[in-house]
Design a protein around this nucleic acid. Sequence first.
DNA 1: ATAAAAATAAGTATAAATACTTACTTTTGA
DNA 2: TCAAAAGTAAGTATTTATACTTATTTTTAT
Lengths: 225, 225
Amino acid sequence: MANIIRTFLVEDHELVRHGIRALLEEYSEVKVVSEASDGIEALEILKDHSPDLLISDIRMPRMNGIELVREVKKIYPQVKTLMLSMHDSEEYVVQSIEAGADGYLLKGSSKEEFIKAIRKIMQGEKYFSGDISTILINHFAGERENADKKRSEKKPKKDDPFQLTNREKQVLMQVLKGRNNQEIGEALNISKRTVEVHRFNLMKKMEVNNLIELTNVAREYGLDG
Amino acid sequence: MANIIRTFLVEDHELVRHGIRALLEEYSEVKVVSEASDGIEALEILKDHSPDLLISDIRMPRMNGIELVREVKKIYPQVKTLMLSMHDSEEYVVQSIEAGADGYLLKGSSKEEFIKAIRKIMQGEKYFSGDISTILINHFAGERENADKKRSEKKPKKDDPFQLTNREKQVLMQVLKGRNNQEIGEALNISKRTVEVHRFNLMKKMEVNNLIELTNVAREYGLDG
DNA sequence: ATAAAAATAAGTATAAATACTTACTTTTGA
DNA sequence: TCAAAAGTAAGTATTTATACTTATTTTTAT
């Protein structure tokens, strides 16, 4: 009766990935058939393994978990998907759902909750950890009129990943260290006006409109130390 | 001959912690005698387990891994310590070393490197993953004269953790969402001038001098979503 | 009931970032 | 070799944040 769940695990930090794999394999109903360390790699080898369940981290270099799930659901709609994330940000949760994820678990969850989520999902249900529900309720209730007016009319995210030039990456690294344009200019031996231009281009390419989003996106793409 | 290594594992994300534990226990020479999910908890129960090796994450709520190692080395100098981190930031590495860590591994390392590090450390050696070495070299070479002048004469970090008021926490949450003072004021129904004051006090209390450091410290203390 | 802490917000001056545009020079790939 | 891309940097105007201080009101704990 209990079929074995063929699982595909995607997570960029090798130690964490192996750890989760070891944990999963404590349950005889689960078998990890393959792993990948980012979305691109996952898509490349996915077809060779025909998994029943894809478990993926969100923040990963090259292609993140949300884009991955979106692709997977397009090509193999029967594959169930569970997001594993460090963060319970509204953005991530909502985007995951829109991408077609069947569940969303925080890495802070217990392993009991982990296996429970997997079982539910394999039975065709959805599973979102408790803390997540609160977020969803807040999101779908119209309670946020105040400061959200402006940002709700935000640009639709295009999905081609941005390409940064070398200099832009250097500037970005400096920005992520908390340096201001003056300091960055001194560090790279260029005028602060030039730094401003690089910074302006960075923000445009990365489609963000403030420092916080910039750091988030940068980390998502593994661009920071 | 091969004594069993009594290991104490500290990491706040339960799934990750159990995963790493499962991974460690694939090696018969390692035994995980106990776990904790932050520095405070670790210190409380450490004495009941007399471990040989403490493996700790860096970013954790309440008390982070660096402070933990500093304390542990003070009280039980014979306990070996290995930092496990997501980040190879210079700050973290240097602070870990100063705190007395015997090794520093990225979570992106392979499990082979993990066990190698453990073995070396238990033999009394130090172990830092390859990428880390580069950072150390850059740090101890005097190559950074340019933009670092100002920040090298930085305040000595005091170790009493800051205490934020409710309002300050609310403002901080908003800041971490990328909102500006105007927007925060609208969201909390106070004038943007008041937000400025809260923000000013926040920066002072948290001893940071820019947004990036603020986000880092906030995350270190588990203050963001 | 009252003192301390927290929250409010204005004043003032300065510094920095944003949001562009234009334009010159250097590097690089086909 | 030559066009495209990357890097440089100034101009200009506007917005936002920083770095305080002072001062009033509100809340909270004893």
